[in-house]
Design a protein around this nucleic acid. Structure first.
Lengths: 198, 198
DNA sequence: TTGACAATAGTACGACCGTTCGTATTATTT
DNA sequence: AAATAATACGAACGGTCGTACTATTGTCAA
């Protein structure tokens, strides 16, 4: 790992934290450089433009999400444990103090939902990737016989993902201590209703 | 209605549209004045500070939300129709082209969930007001015997509100044409499960 | 119609934005 | 050790930001 790669990684770590609280637009090259004790221009040279910096931050966030949420869940035995793992890890991710201001991708998706361009395209791609992961795991659970054969997996994914979003709102902004219980109850209820009745 | 009040209202209408797409931070006095064909300073004089402008925009948004979502729902017969009305109107509100960029309050709540201050306080208050409205209507539906007596109304509200948020995501960013059907199905399912079994 | 005051415009400010440039320093390769 | 590439720096650019002042215009009752 060269020196450049190392500082680039350090920059992205700090940028991720900053984006998490201030958003991709609030992420500013000057203050980011200050926090890292380096010059604006030196930092800038690593990315070439603010937009490319934003894209790099999003990609780093997606990596972190994959490491924290997706991969551990997919390491579970296939079928229902994976589906449950996805949601449980997602809830934990939302509470993870590593990102002081909550999931940067979720924040960015609202920030950019009306600003077409490469950043929006990237966010849409990331969100649809995640949707596909949930749908895939759910479909697998149906095939395994854990969930009902007539389950509408897209509807299921919509509801599950919505609950994770709602949890962010309730936990991050309203700071309601019951949020976690509500979210877990809701997710477990969603899964229970999708279970095969015996 | 004096001249000042009229222009102030016109400013807020335009500011609301701008906030809806660009967020409360992206809302900028200069371009707002340009779009209204007036000077920065002339506009500025109406509010005294950007923060007060932001607060006024939020209050205007809440009024609009109350007129579009809450009041028509509360005009329904008490009990289940009101609860259903709230969610149906909320879904319609999210699709309403009056706000070109979706609900400004929802956008603001993610924008400000890590920026303490008077604006965050106002957003929290608005969100909790809305939560109280949902909970109140639901509790009423329980009292009327439309919904199960043992229903956890807070859990119910959490799930319903989460679905409305998830719908925004799916409809506004991903532009998935199935979003509306998913959201309606989910809300109706939520209500059906809360119904008294006969 | 005039006088008082509200409403708007004009101008200027300091701060910060993303970006560019030339240059110095440090790593890496030869 | 020399040559070259990779990194980082400081200063400056044109712009835009929110805000402060002052001047001008418009409104409306007496």
């Amino acid at each position: 790992m060269s020196k450049g790669e190392r500082t680039r990684a350090a920059i992205l770590d700090q940028a991720l934290a900053m984006t998490s609280t201030d958003g991709l637009t609030g992420l500013t090259i000057g203050t980011l450089a200050d926090r890292l004790g380096m010059s604006k221009s030196g930092l800038f040279a690593h990315f070439g433009s603010k937009e490319q910096l934003q894209a790099a931050v999003l990609e780093r966030a997606a990596e972190l999400f994959a490491d924290t949420v997706v991969r551990p869940a997919l390491a579970q035995p296939r079928g229902l444990p994976r589906v449950l793992g996805l949601f449980e890890n997602w809830i934990a991710w939302t509470m993870d103090p590593v990102l002081p201001g909550g999931c940067p991708i979720q924040a960015a998706s609202i920030e950019f939902d009306d600003r077409p361009g490469p950043i929006q395209d990237l966010i849409v791609k990331q969100q649809e990737d995640m949707r596909r992961v949930v749908i895939g795991a759910t479909r697998r659970a149906v095939e395994e016989g854990h969930l009902r054969a007539d389950l509408d997996v897209e509807q299921f994914a919509f509801e599950g993902i919505s609950l994770c979003y709602g949890f962010t709102q309730s936990y991050r902004l309203l700071k309601n201590p019951k949020s976690e219980v509500w979210a877990r109850n809701a997710v477990h209820g969603l899964i229970d209703r999708a279970r095969v009745r015996q």
